[in-house]
């Protein structure tokens, strides 16, 4: 760990010549009743004290937006006596609820594996298992399953080559937030890379919160569950009675 820090400091030394300055179109997302996803516009510029270095390879940009981390239980089905039954279960300790990656070029070409590990960029780095149970043969399959299922649900997205980089100075991209978003603090990070190494990082926060009626219902359900249950029942009984009366009047 200490060695990794020292190496990163040494590497970061000469790279300070280029610095990323980033911003977002909005730093908060309100989930209201008609929330149907949102789009965040990420933009930024490269600040330089001196002309761009020619030797270190072309400049690239990686933008990631990451939702709050969750602990996830992954279960695997196996055929037993002719039917499919959940057998092995693995607790994946860290898995972001949402993760979007956009880049200027294919991810593997613009950043090395060690740099991805250091900055936790990529689905394989984001979904992590601290201690797998011994009896499970291949815990890697379970973390891969988290990525696969969440990609299918549109929660993990990787789009290579869609960040626009103009004259090695200005960059912009759009990241779509899906409708099945959970509340919490989201982090948007912007990386500059040259020669497959990260030379500068900028970070912005996005607060995703339920608002209005959604907020009211959510807090009532969690803070006054008994009252919430009674109200739910009252609404149900009223609706049942109202429909019955309405139809009786209609029949007359």
């Amino acid at each position: 760990m200490i060695r990794a820090l020292l190496i990163s400091l040494l590497l970061a030394g000469p790279a300070l010549a280029e610095d990323v300055v980033g911003a977002l179109s909005q730093n908060s997302v309100s989930i209201t009743a008609n929330f149907n996803g949102s789009e965040i516009w990420v933009f930024g510029a490269v600040k330089r004290e001196e002309p761009a270095p020619q030797s270190a390879g072309p400049l690239h940009v990686i933008v990631t937006i990451r939702g709050p981390d969750e602990r996830v239980t992954v279960r695997k089905k196996e055929r037993t006596l002719g039917i499919w039954v959940n057998r092995d279960a693995v607790e994946v300790d860290v898995a972001p609820s949402f993760y979007a990656i956009t880049t200027t070029a294919p991810l593997e070409e613009i950043i090395s594996a060690t740099e991805r590990l250091r900055h936790r960029i990529g689905f394989d780095q984001a979904v992590r298992l601290v201690g797998a149970p011994v009896e499970v043969a291949s815990p890697r399959d379970f973390t891969a399953a988290v990525t696969r299922i969440r990609q299918d649900n549109g929660l993990y997205v990787q789009k290579d080559g869609i960040v626009d980089l103009t004259q090695d100075t200005l960059f912009t991209t759009r990241v779509a937030l899906p409708a099945n978003l959970v509340e919490g603090s989201y982090r948007a990070r912007m990386f500059l890379t040259r020669g497959r190494k990260v030379i500068s990082v900028s970070e912005e926060a996005i607060e995703v919160r339920k608002e209005g009626l959604e907020r009211l219902i959510y807090t009532t359900a969690h803070e006054r569950p008994f009252l919430y249950g009674i109200i739910s029942l009252a609404v149900a009984l009223f609706a049942g009675w109202a429909a019955s009366e309405a139809f009786r009047l209609l029949r007359r």
Binding site: A33, E214, A221, P225, Y228, G229, I230, S232, V235, A239
Partner: peptide, 26 residues
């Protein structure tokens, strides 16, 4: 059952319930 779930698990969704029951009662 509704009360049990509301108090123990907080899993009763009022908006979902209202939409389902509007259609349901009719």
């Amino acid at each position: 059952t509704t009360m049990m779930h509301a108090v123990q698990n907080q899993t009763v969704d009022a908006v979902l319930a209202v939409l389902l029951l509007l259609g349901g009662v009719v």
